[in-house]
């Protein structure tokens, strides 16, 4: 099939960006979306122009590198998948596809479709961990964890840190990302000692990084490739309230 692509091009962080139009020809339905972009980029290069830049690495939906807004929806709108797991069989011949980077002031554009998401790392650095020095840990079975708790913690821990939640939110809020980490660690017995301190510090960093406020519209949950549940935001709010009262 043949498609028309409108791709965001931006030279660097301070430059103004604009859409450029490209034709994607002879695309096979079994191709992944990123493989389709590879094909287009090879053609752009052959015509003597610089290919557009986009992030990707594992190409199997787990590293969280790919970060494309496709036709206005982060990761393209297929439930529970990243852009790298989106296949061309979901598009039709003659379609026009718009491709943009994440749009959030906390994620500045470095080039074309690539953004700087190190704000997420700084949120984790401020408290998204259990302080367990290497060595000296007790036996793994010394502290039983009930299966429902372990499963729920895993549901939250599945977050891949891609930032689609921020890109989907009208306020560019990072609440779902922070809630996932706060819930993962707060649900486990090992995470109790730092539970309330953690949530306060992470929320403070989130605010300082320029992410917006949460109004619980659920846009984040709708686009999350790992289908992280909105209920974790409730858990975050409760822990935050307790944490700020303890301060």
């Amino acid at each position: 099939m043949n498609l028309t692509l409108k791709v965001w091009r931006q030279k660097n962080r301070s430059a103004a960006g604009e859409f450029a139009t490209y034709q994607a020809r002879d695309i096979i339905p079994d191709m992944s979306f990123l493989e389709m972009l590879d094909v287009v980029n090879e053609e752009i290069l052959a015509q003597g122009h610089e290919p557009f830049a986009f992030d990707s690495d594992c190409r199997e939906g787990i590293c969280g590198a790919c970060s494309l807004v496709i036709n206005g929806i982060p990761h393209g709108g297929n439930k529970g998948v990243t852009a790298c797991q989106l296949h061309m069989r979901h598009f039709h011949d003659g379609q026009t596809i718009t491709i943009e980077p994440w749009r959030a002031s906390a994620f500045p554009v470095d080039r074309d479709l690539i953004t700087d998401r190190t704000a997420f790392d700084r949120i984790i650095a401020s408290g998204g961990f259990i302080s367990a020095h290497t060595g000296g840990a007790p036996d793994g079975n010394a502290l039983p964890v009930s299966k429902p708790d372990a499963d729920k913690a895993m549901d939250a821990a599945a977050c891949i840190g891609c930032g689609a939640c921020v890109a989907a939110c009208k306020n560019a809020s990072a609440m779902l990302f922070v809630a996932a980490k706060v819930s993962h660690l707060g649900l486990l017995p090992q995470g109790q000692a730092e539970r309330y301190d953690r949530v306060v510090k992470m929320v403070e960093t989130m605010d300082n990084e320029g992410f917006g406020n949460c109004t619980v519209t659920g846009a984040c949950e709708a686009v999350c490739p790992k289908e992280i549940s909105l209920e974790f935001i409730g858990r975050l709010n409760r822990d935050y309230l307790v944490g700020s009262l303890k301060k």
Binding site: F129, P138, V145, A153, H184, L188
Partner: peptide, 9 residues
């Protein structure tokens, strides 16, 4: 386990 890795139980 001490770090909070949610292993299957």
């Amino acid at each position: 386990v001490a770090q909070g890795v949610p292993f299957a139980r």
